[in-house]
């Protein structure tokens, strides 16, 4: 994979372009005119509280949800449902501990799991799986059942599963949601390394932006179905977020953390507060 490592060049085409995507489900507008682009090898955080439309947006990018308006261009290819240049790690994967499947078997499925026929054991295949195990620091539990691994370990296996097909974009839906702080930090470090060393763009959704601040190149902030995109300095500003929420909010920098605080009378303040976002940490 190292042969693809090359410096990010300004004129390299975007690996993902989301253009004016609007999605309405059940008469409710989930996403409204969302637009942003992702450069190869960059690290982007998709930030928003629960119900902001993060998962819907990811489903649109994956081609699982057709947008009402707008389009998604993946690696220069629009309209192709289910693009192979995307690796995907869904939220909350339940793996049965009784299932006879080792971590390396699951990673192997990432290579050709969508193809018909049985997998033929080969040296190339084995060495590719070993390479992926090494890339996510999972050699230690390569031969353990996936179902009995811890949340952070399973997350690594799933990332390797997504990486082995050599995607140009890695999508992760709330990968930090069920992890303790340390495992979360490790996963973020791993993803950052993948983005820079392997030149694979990472788009990661989260409701908390602080853990991502050190590694994020760009941020896509979702609120009320609308999005603001840019570098953190461009987006995480009082006037930008106030416009997005349609209500005055204040962005505070305390030490190296960012807090987003809703002004008085925000209609959804109760909901924001429940997510740790009304006194919004995200």
């Amino acid at each position: 994979m190292t042969d693809r490592s090359q410096p990010v060049t300004a004129n390299e085409p975007d690996v993902l372009r989301v253009e004016g995507v609007t999605v309405a489900l059940g008469g409710r507008t989930i996403l409204e005119d969302v637009a942003f682009a992702i450069a190869p090898g960059s690290f982007t955080g998709l930030i928003g509280s629960n119900g902001a439309g993060k998962t819907t947006l990811l489903r649109v990018i994956l081609g699982l949800q057709r947008p009402g308006r707008g389009r998604v261009v993946v690696a220069g290819d629009a309209g192709n449902r289910r693009n192979r240049s995307i690796g995907y790690v869904p939220q909350k994967v339940l793996l049965d501990p009784d299932m006879p499947m080792r971590a390396r078997d699951l990673i192997g499925l990432g290579l050709d799991g969508h193809r018909f026929g049985i997998p033929m054991p080969s040296k190339t295949r084995t060495s590719l799986v070993d390479e992926m195990l090494a890339a996510v620091d999972a050699e230690r539990f390569a031969n353990a059942r996936v179902g009995i691994l811890s949340g952070g370990e399973q997350q690594r296996v799933l990332i390797a599963h997504a990486l082995i097909s050599r995607p140009r974009l890695l999508l992760l839906d709330e990968p930090l949601a069920n992890l303790d702080l340390r495992s979360g930090q490790e996963i973020i470090g791993l993803l950052h390394r993948i983005a820079t060393e392997h030149h694979i763009a990472v788009l990661l959704s989260a409701h908390e932006m602080n853990p991502l601040l050190p590694v994020m190149d760009r941020v896509v902030y979702l609120a009320g179905g609308r999005a603001a995109a840019g570098t953190t300095d461009e987006v995480i500003r009082t006037e930008v977020l106030s416009g997005l929420y349609g209500h005055p909010v204040e962005v505070l920098h305390i030490h190296d953390r960012v807090l987003v605080i809703a002004g008085p009378g925000y209609p959804d303040a109760a909901r924001l507060a429940a997510e740790g976002a009304g006194i919004e940490l995200g």
Partner: peptide, 15 residues
């Protein structure tokens, strides 16, 4: 196998 083990990923990969 893929759709039995991780249906969400299988769906995203066109299965």
């Amino acid at each position: 196998t893929l759709s039995s083990v991780v249906p969400e990923i299988a769906e995203a990969r066109g299965v």
